[in-house]
Structures are given as C-alpha cells and as structure tokens.
Design a binder for these strands. Structure first.
Length: 490
RNA sequence: GGCUCCGUCGCCAAGUGGUAAGGCAGAGGUCUGCAAAAUCUCCAUCACCAGUUCGAAUCUGGUCGGAGCCUCCA
C-alpha cells in the first residue's frame, strides 16, 4: 500500500508521490529563538521527526530543513531587556533548543539554517518580487501586494473581503492594501540591520522561510510542515512570495500538526499552565513524553495532564517489561534445541508477531497513524508474553520467531524513536523514580527484602506480609519471582 | 461574524459506507504461601433528530455542546 498523507491544501488524504522519485525535500518552520521551548514545540518537532524517520525507513533519500528564526521583534525586545545583543540572545536559545531536541531524542535535520545567514538570498528574493511588480517599497519598508496574487488565501481558505473587514493598518505603515505584509522593515535606531537597496533594515518573518527553503530545497519541493497556527498568515504568505517569484508551484504537500492543551485548556503564559520542555523533563522520562505524543494522531489536539502522562509511562513500561522478559528467556534458551513445529495453541500469537512490521507499515502509510501503529505493537507485546507464558520450552523454531519478533519490535520502535534504552536498565531507572520521596534508600529496601526472605523460608508469612505492607505504604512494591524478589516504585 | 475542526466504553484514543483497534481503570479465572507481574475471559453501537442506502459511527440536512484560527504563536 502506498503512503498517503493529509494535505491541508486539498483537505484530503493524497497518495504521496515526490517530485523526484526516491527523493524527498521537506521543510519545517523552526522556532524563533528568544525563549525556552515549550511542550507545544516538543510536539511539533516530534511529529516531524517521525515523518522524517518514517520516510527514511521507507527508503526515501530525505533532505530535511528546519530553520532558526534568529532575527525578529521579540528577539530584539528580549535582548534589550537583558542588555545583550540580539545575536547573543539568539545563540543562547539556539543552544538551548538543540539541547532540548537532543534530550527528546530527535534526529538531526539535514540542514538547520539561520535566517541571518541567508540575508543575501532574502534581499535577492525581495528584489525579484519588486521587479515582477508583486511588491513595492514604501518609506524604506517593502510590502507584498496581495492583490497581485490571485490565489492568495488558497491554503487557509479565507475570504479577502471578510479579512479586510477586520484588518487595519498600524500607524506608520504605508500599505496599499491592509492585508499587504512586510517583506523588509526599515531599521529603527538600535536595531540590528543589514544594508539593502531600500536602506538599512531587516527581513520580515515570512520571506526568511521562502528564501531558506528555495536555497536548500529548490523553488518546488515536496513537504512543508508546521503547527496549525502557522497556516495563516505565515504559510499563506510563503506561498504568495515563493510562487510569485518562481512562477512554479511551491509545495506539494502541506502538513500541519495539532495543538497541545493542558488540562483541557489552551496552554498560555497568562493561564499559568505553561510548561517548557526542560520543566517537563524534570518529572518525566523523555521517552514517555515522546510515547505520549504518539498515542494520538498528529493532527488531533492532545491534552497534556499528569494522568495522561502517567498512563503513557505505564504503557511504555509494558513494552520494556516484555522486551526484558524476552531478553531473559532468549539468553536462557538452549541454543542447541531441536527445531520443530509450533504448537497449534501458539499459532495465533506467532502469526501476530510475524505480521508486526507489515501491520506497522500499513498504519503508518495511512497519514502517519502512530496511534494505530502503537496499537499493533501492543498486539505484538501480547503475542510475545503469551508465547513466553505458554510454551513449555523454546524449541529452535520458537527461538527464531521470538528473536525475529524482538528485532522487528525494536526496528519499528526505532522509527518512532522508542525502545532505544536497554530494557532492564530502563525498568531499573523507572522502578527507582520517586524513591527519594519515600525516605528509603535502595539499601534499606534490600535489607528488608533479605529479612523477608528469611521470614518466608521460616514460613513466617505474617512477618513477610508485614514487611511488604510497610514498604507498600511508602510506595515500594515487592515482586516475588523465581529468582528472588525485585521491587519498584508504584 | 467568517474559516477550520471535534463530540466513539469510567478515562485516553484509532476507525470515515459493510456491521466498533489498542492502552489505562474495573470484574472473574489461571499462576502465587498471599500478592505483584504475566495470561485467559468479560466490559460501548459511536451527542441528538431527520434523511440517503441492501447496509452509516462513517454520507446529507438540522439541533445541541466543545476547540482552534482570523494579531505574534508549534
């Protein structure tokens, strides 16, 4: 089945056919680097990380471009507040962004251009638009003339008259049409600026992306992504600029991710429900955050809450539990075991396991349906657990099936950026989370486990249960197994 | 007001014409000294109304409820 993607432009799922067979050019709007990134940025970047990974997994040669907007009103304002240069501020938050993305386990894009490094291309593009009479200079500013671009608003499906009703021109802006937007802004005193044919100034936001994408991907490319909120005006304006300049279609597929809400409300600084990536990683494992993001479709809104994150943690640990059990069983299995037929009772789980990768692919081919993909992966987990629980011994055949199933699960997990840790190590880490709040140390617990083992050996179950209850009251759960007793935090 | 979109089990969440995936929680069985984990079984007719259709959660119209965008924003 071919890959199908939902295109915001058409409002439909379309079969994905890149402009050049086997190659994909993809541009995603990055961040304006004036503050730490929040969990909404995390979602957008995780979503397109998955798109990137899945296209690579599907054997496309992908060129992925994600920019840094490092010149902007907000950067200037924040830099002035702190008494440092815009450039210093931008560099600080570029580094912070890189750290956050690395912590979340994102694959590095092919190119991460900074807008300020493309000033020449930006100016050339603005000149080109003026030459084509699509833009005009006005007192040192340059504006794009939306009336000259007949298909303006085709992406956001808005109506020009309606838009005009609510539009107004800010004081000092000399626009012909209130909807015209700035390609170049003349410099005010103390602002960073670049020389241009229209005097010293700096680029408008939209033109930066048009210039960087065409420089690195060409004037037409396959995928452009970003958050829903960027559809208008940012992406609409990119289309107007790029298509007017090149005379060619700009982007084939527009992909937009849904928003993150917090406890059912829009996240905003004023509501006080605003979380940066760094905040959240203090309480949650990065892989849990990623897993949580993938349990819903990328276009749907997701609700960030402790309960939902906790559910994600439990769900992810189910995978790691199964992988750890599987590793243990395979390590113990007799490598010289005879080959033989699989018992009829195990035919179904074996079949499920064998089909994992195919089912994963068919879910992902349907507009990157990670929620369905994960459901299919849970089926594989149940299959593994069931084989381990029901097979009296692992013959050569079953060992091969389980080993292959393990490899497949890790392989599809890697496409989603999951299961990168050693299962036993991940579980051990997860087990100890919250230990410090219990007031106990691992050594305390081990000592009690030893005492309890003795009690159990003496069939003093009252004392054994008392120890377990005491620990349970402090959030420590004892797990008796054939090889002794383990523990984990609730 | 305009434009997008949503309303599926207690909670999260797929499915968009062929008779409801998955996870969490819950009930019961197996295992266990007892538990936990694992496993097995059970647990929804898809906000409401009216249509189209052999057949609708899925299409059409309407009603109610909710969200986002229309200004910087992932």
């Amino acid at each position: 089945m071919p890959l199908r993607v939902y295109n915001t432009q058409s409002g439909k799922k379309e079969e994905f056919q890149p402009l050049v067979p086997g190659k994909v050019g993809m541009y995603v709007c990055g961040v304006t680097v004036y503050d730490y990134c929040h969990i909404g940025h995390a979602r957008a970047n995780i979503v397109f990380d998955i798109v990137y990974r899945y296209l690579q997994y599907s054997n496309y040669d992908v060129t992925y471009v994600r920019n840094y907007t490092d010149v902007d009103d907000k950067i200037i304002a924040r830099a002035n507040e702190r008494g440092i240069s815009s450039q210093e501020l931008a560099e600080e938050f570029i580094q912070a962004f890189d750290e956050d993305m690395a912590a979340l386990g994102l694959r590095k894009p092919t190119h991460e251009p900074k807008a300020t490094a493309y000033m020449e291309q930006i100016i050339a593009l603005v000149e080109q638009l003026i030459d084509k009479d699509m833009a005009y200079e006005s007192a040192g500013d340059v504006y794009y003339s939306v009336d000259k671009f007949p298909s303006y608003l085709k992406l956001s499906k808005r109506n020009m008259e309606e838009m005009l009703a609510g539009a107004r021109i800010a004081p000092g802006e000399l626009k012909r049409n209130p909807m015209d937007f700035a390609l170049w802004k003349s410099a005010k005193p103390g602002e960073p600026s670049w020389e241009s044919p229209w005097g010293a100034g700096r680029p408008g936001w939209h033109i930066e992306c048009s210039a960087m994408s065409s420089a690195l991907l060409g004037t037409s490319f396959d995928i452009h992504g970003g958050g829903r909120d960027l559809i208008f005006p940012h992406h609409e304006n990119e289309i107007a600029q790029s298509e007017a300049a090149s005379g060619k279609p700009f982007v084939k597929y527009w992909l937009h991710n849904g928003f993150v809400n917090v406890d059912q409300e829009k996240m905003s600084k004023s509501l006080g429900n605003f979380f940066t990536i760094r905040d959240i990683l203090k309480s949650y494992d990065p892989e849990v955050v990623r897993f949580f993001n993938l349990t819903a479709h990328y276009r749907s809104p997701i609700d960030f809450s402790d309960q939902n994150l906790e559910e994600a943690r439990i769900g992810l640990s189910r995978f790691y539990e199964a992988l750890a059990q599987l590793d243990k069983a395979l390590a113990k299995a007799d490598t010289n075991a005879e080959s033989g037929a699989v018992a009829a009772a195990l035919a179904e789980p074996v079949e499920r396991l064998v089909q994992l990768e195919e089912r994963f692919r068919s879910a992902m081919d349907d507009d990157f349906n990670t929620a369905l993909a994960i459901a299919n992966m849970f089926d594989a987990v149940r299959a593994i657990n069931r084989i381990l629980a029901e097979a009296s011994h692992l013959n050569g055949q079953l060992q091969a099936i389980l080993a292959k199933g393990r490899d497949d699960l890790l392989k599809v997990g890697d496409v989603l950026g999951l299961f990168g840790s050693n299962p036993a190590a991940w579980l051990a880490r997860s087990a100890q989370e919250g230990l410090s709040e219990s007031g106990l140390s691992a050594a305390d617990i081990d000592a009690l486990i030893v005492e309890r083992r003795q009690a159990r050996a003496n069939r003093d179950f009252a004392r054994a249960d008392q120890i377990r209850d005491e620990l349970a009251a402090k959030g420590v759960l004892l797990l008796d197994g054939p090889e002794g007793t383990n523990w984990k935090m609730k």
